[in-house]
Design a protein around this nucleic acid. Structure first.
Lengths: 115, 115
DNA sequence: CTCGTATCTGGAGCGCGCTCCAGGTCAAGA
DNA sequence: TCTTGACCTGGAGCGCGCTCCAGATACGAG
């Protein structure tokens, strides 16, 4: 199975090497497999997971939130706990969208005023 | 004209006194009128403006962004500049919404999977 | 084998957005 | 008048999310 160097993984994901190591330290990804000499070897699965993390980071979730997310998806929580957790997260994202929409309404109002 | 103490303004806006002073230092609000003794006297207009700032902060805009917003709305920029600026801001908010939607789609997928 | 580059680790540093603190001032009630 | 509490200022401190650094190690090219 082909693996990727940190540089390649960083390039493919758009996340810096330092940040990849930081995410790993924080338990958001990995632990990434190592070569005999200790160098990280990223797999395509790792990249996919990094993509998920990035997606949530871009949506504004904090590191702690993501740690919870990772824990839920990995650990042996009963399915209903997972669903409840995921719905909670979804609701908080909806609230963020609502806040954004309020701000956009204000902007639209100002735009209309100056147009 | 009736004015409000810092405590009341904080209470009415949901923004802490420290943060109100911080916003004022950063030029996001005010400058707030002072009493003879130097105490701040907030007006209803001030509260309205604080509400705007809060709205944008909740939408995730940074202090620097808001300073730009304030500058545009206050200063003598030509209307077309203002409109261009406001449209730019709106576009970046739309991108945030898009990022949130992507994250929500991932969540929905997981929710469906565990349901 | 040697060189040069990539990577490793632990820890320090940084920008943001507050938040808190010390030490002093103002003002309303007893 | 005296007390008490809200408020003032300047500046330090803090949590987050990286980002950078030093010094050591791995490893592919020549």
């Amino acid at each position: 199975m082909t693996t990727l160097t940190p540089a390649t993984a960083a390039d493919r994901t758009g996340v810096s090497i330092d940040t990849l190591r930081y995410y790993e330290r924080e338990g958001l990804i990995g632990p990434i497999r190592r070569s005999a000499g200790g160098r990280r070897q990223y797999t395509e699965d790792d990249l996919f997971w990094i993509g998920l993390v990035t997606c949530f980071r871009e949506a504004g979730l904090g590191i702690t939130d993501l740690r919870g997310f990772v824990a839920i998806l990995r650990a042996e929580h009963p399915p209903q706990d997972r669903v409840a957790f995921l719905r909670e997260r979804r609701a908080s994202l909806e609230q963020r969208v609502a806040a954004l929409c309020r701000a956009m309404e204000v902007l639209d109002e100002k735009i209309a005023y100056y147009s």
